[in-house]
Design a protein around this nucleic acid. Sequence first.
RNA 1: GGCUCGGUAGCUCAGUGGUAGAGCAGGGGACUCAUAAGCCCUUGGUCGCAAGUUCGAAUCUUGCCCGAGUCACCA
Length: 508
Amino acid sequence: MKRAFYVTTPIYYISGNPHIGHAYTTVVADVLARTARTSGPAYFLTGTDEHGQKVANAATAAGTTPQAWCDELVPRWQKLFATYHVRYDDFIRTTEPRHESVVQRVFERLRDNGDVYLGKYEGWYCVNDETFWLEAKLVDGKCPTCGREVQWISEDDWFFRLSNYRDRLLQYYREHPEWVRPKSVYNEMVALLEEGLEDFSISRTNFDWGIPIPGGGGVIYVWFDALLNYISAIGWSSDPERFATYWPASVQLIGKEIARFHTLIWPAVLWALGEQAPELVFAHGWITVDGQKMGKSLGNAVDPFALAERFGADSLRYFLLREAPFGSDFSYSEAKIAQRHNSDLGNDLGNLVRRSLSMLFKYRDGVVPPGDATGSEVGAAMATLPQRVRSLILSLDFRGALEAVWELVVTLNRRIDDQKPWVLHREERDTELDALLYDLCEGIRWLAMLLHPVMPERTAEMWRQLGATAPIDADWSEALRWGGLAPGTRVVLGDALFPRIELDAAGS
RNA sequence: GGCUCGGUAGCUCAGUGGUAGAGCAGGGGACUCAUAAGCCCUUGGUCGCAAGUUCGAAUCUUGCCCGAGUCACCA
């Protein structure tokens, strides 16, 4: 089987409601997967992280079982992704048997080869944060992050021999300076490696909502369990051929706060299993509100459903990818979303489609005329655009990719003003008018295909208005040749693709 | 506090040694197919502060100021 592009998001911890940040990461993964598919196979995995004491406690508080609690919450996440037009190939839940069996097999394998050993863990433990603290870190004898009471825990725990992999990690970082991005996260991790790594506990005995350790002795620590989703979903140890198709992952998207799990512990675990580290781990930036990180605890989380309702999911997708360089933080505001929507999508793109199709109706009864038999200037100028766009997206430069696509938008708008089709029509210069109208329609076809990964729903509407019948997500190298739109195609004059959004004076 | 990143036009950002750039917003103009959109022209910056290196610094060094992130909850 051919190697495929494999992209993952973190699996989302099942507590509380999803916010716009969760949609962000997942949308980015979706755009990568959809773009990769324009030249070959791709696989996009997301899912939920469902074990751990916090989930157990929340379920108890709700008067239900942890499993029932998770079953109730999972659809909210799936609904979020559906709202944002995300099409994943697989949604894994860590409570599924296919995952649990892999985690247990991994544990057995590592215990057999000595990377996992039995030791004693003693320390102060905060239940809320699921975190062990050194005595020196405690504030007034309480948890330094949440301020709650901590308890003294002394237990026999299983440990992963992370310290053994420190030298190999350091060497790997030196030889692969691009494997963790952006650079700031890479630097942080190298600094941590230089300080040294300690073995860490991968078992818990003080609660039981987790994957049982084979042979007894508690449950597996939720983080160790969670990381393995990336390989349990693609058949590690159960379907070697399938696994080899996808692993190592092409891109693993994460948030900055979970970088050490994904870029220190995760590769070490993989190596302990005899597998390769992922090709790229990318920690993206935060959506901020007034420069402050968004989060439940800060009370400034934005409801992603309301936002999609107001601006349209595709406009939001465009905004998230276009507004800031990928990797940097960027500040969210409704005014900025509205500005992008109105300016880029409404004025430039939507209006281009509207004015082009309108003229096609006015001058040619809505039927695509033949193009210039001697070739199109626009077509020649845009010949390399698809491969540029794909390459920019797959290197995670979404902003650059969208700017490149806008070269075509600007070119077509300018062409209309330069050639003045209303004059061509008045003077009955039919061949010139045909050639121009053809280029406009063909250009719109290109735009629909090029932007489809970013705005799947609105581009499908463009496609419908254009009367195109071929698949919109076909292989670019085949479909994006100038002249692909058949003359004689009947277009449809539909509603505006991106109607203007007016914010009231107070709207910010 | 340690570490990391950033501070360039009103906004979002590009620009790593050689006379300050783009898009948006603002101003002006010519058009009319179009979502008062598009096109052309244009205003606007002592490149966080200070010192240093250099023939020459937004770009290198040092110090400082400000912002953010991370340091086992969190995209």
